[in-house]
Design a protein around this nucleic acid. Sequence first.
DNA 1: TCTAACCCCGTAAACGTTTTCAGTAAGCCT
DNA 2: AGGCTTACTGAAAACGTTTACGGGGTTAGA
Lengths: 340, 340
Amino acid sequence: MVPVSDGPTITTIAERAGVSIASVSRVLNGLPTRENTVRRVLSAAEELGYVPNSVARSLKSRRTNQVAFAMADIGNPVYLAMIREIQPVLKAAGYRLVLHSTDADVADEIDVLRGLGERYVDGLIMIPLRVSEAHLKAVEAARAPVVIIGSVPDGTRVDNIRADSRTGVRLALDHLHSLGRRRIGFVNGPLDTVPGSARSTAYAEALTALGLPYDENLVEIGDFYRAEGAAAVSRLLARAPDLDAIMCANDLIALGALEVLRRAGRRVPEDVAVAGMDDIDMAAAAWPALTSVSLGSAERGRAAAELLLDRLGNGEREPRVVTVPPRLVVRASTAGEETP
Amino acid sequence: MVPVSDGPTITTIAERAGVSIASVSRVLNGLPTRENTVRRVLSAAEELGYVPNSVARSLKSRRTNQVAFAMADIGNPVYLAMIREIQPVLKAAGYRLVLHSTDADVADEIDVLRGLGERYVDGLIMIPLRVSEAHLKAVEAARAPVVIIGSVPDGTRVDNIRADSRTGVRLALDHLHSLGRRRIGFVNGPLDTVPGSARSTAYAEALTALGLPYDENLVEIGDFYRAEGAAAVSRLLARAPDLDAIMCANDLIALGALEVLRRAGRRVPEDVAVAGMDDIDMAAAAWPALTSVSLGSAERGRAAAELLLDRLGNGEREPRVVTVPPRLVVRASTAGEETP
DNA sequence: TCTAACCCCGTAAACGTTTTCAGTAAGCCT
DNA sequence: AGGCTTACTGAAAACGTTTACGGGGTTAGA
């Protein structure tokens, strides 16, 4: 466990096997070599417990076999679901995963992008919570392939994975409407975030499509976490006590909503139906189990990894945009039969 | 975004500034240099948008500024809690985090350890689910500092972070006992895992200490996941319908237990009290909120990171063992007043 | 004016690989 | 047997840094 003196290198092997380092390299890389040489080199390598130095290899080959993933916060189950898909895909392709948690700090995210110049990774998958001009500039200037999860302006020259939260919100609201709900509240996260703004627009549009009025009293802004979500739901309940459903911009908020409603003595779904978004693992484990719109976190993660690998194999192709369709997962919090 | 022709190197800068690469390097590293040279180099670097190549730097300096974290499965909330602590500590010290998910596969874990020879990281934090002879051998032979989270045999020459699940189980059982529970079931994960075996012993010991008999019918083995845990709880309920409490070897199992009990029409905690271990985020969000023994995942993560950093600064000190004390977090699932 | 001391700077080696290029030995054909 | 091809090998360069070493210029002291 204590750092060993100094590991063997191909030079050590070459000396012991009585050949040149070139031959050693060839043998180790499976290039055609005389049987006898192969044997000598391999046994020397074996005896010495040789392990190739990946740093030296990277310097020469200009590839690190590492890919970075940058997100706001590993604690967020959505990002976690993505990592769970990304990791095996990369691993299968021989890449290691380097993790960056940026706390949604723009400067930090730009740093990551500029850091690509250091060449410690071959590519980057990034999921910025907010997308600024600075981001776009940095992305275009990046020294390695980048895949962005989360919509960027059309025309940005970057591989892009998108969720379709517009359709997603629409699915949920249609569902609530079909259950007879007409006073449907909406609890969102910050409007200056990518998901926040998209879902805000989507809510308004869906109401219009359903012929329901947009009532400011039915909308509340908090943050994408449980505690903040719960607080926002409390405010919403106070302002619009007559609501019969709450659409939450993500599942963490929805979990907070369940808690608040329970404390307030409102039955879910009888009195108030609750729907979330993202379909995180916890949604199924909640009680009542949470109806949620899956935005395909896992699929987006996988798609991002695949897109990046593809790009790493072919640097010159045109940027691609992949949109992952949403899917409504109906559970007890809207359509439940169970009562406590 | 498309890979740029070829980034500037110190050679490029040297040419433009009309100095040698040595001077460039000196300036960039802040070594004493004539004012005039400094200015020329810095402005050349600026104009060229120079970013140092970390691979070349690593090759020379023999440090990568990367640390690996290897665990069975990123999906597990316990490991996640650890990562959340480890990441910022490492980041503050200038290290990047490389993630390995091993699926608890021994061969895979050994691979990670042997991979240290490739020198792509300066150190490793590993949390093996099972600890075999092969592990210990590989750890002792590792070419870079290693910190193991999870007990290893005394005397193993490796920095080691331990939870104290013995005391943890004891805390929970004392608590249940003090609430008047006497038929306390136990749902565990596989006995050949580090936590599984520790908690199994601890359960038996705690019963003895409390003067309660060990009843085989009260013990069931499943796996450390919700679904498997739920199945195990079902079997347990069938075998011992008279139990009045269930101690679960982790919170995922406990969440499964809540579900099964609810379906079975048993009230929690009135009919059956439920306690878990690990105190994952979800425990507080469950309903009823889950009593859980915190084994200090966050603290263990942080301690591991700090121990590794310390070791990276001082390779020769004696291995250290840090034990993080458990803490009982009482919530509604054992001591709740609320009823549905 | 000469020497000593000092300060910068450039040359070159080194880190551990991969890869090009040229050379040698062996085998084959005529 | 001599020339040609083939098959393998070794020397050396290269990847982009850091750093030991020594040389050259300047300044100060004698």
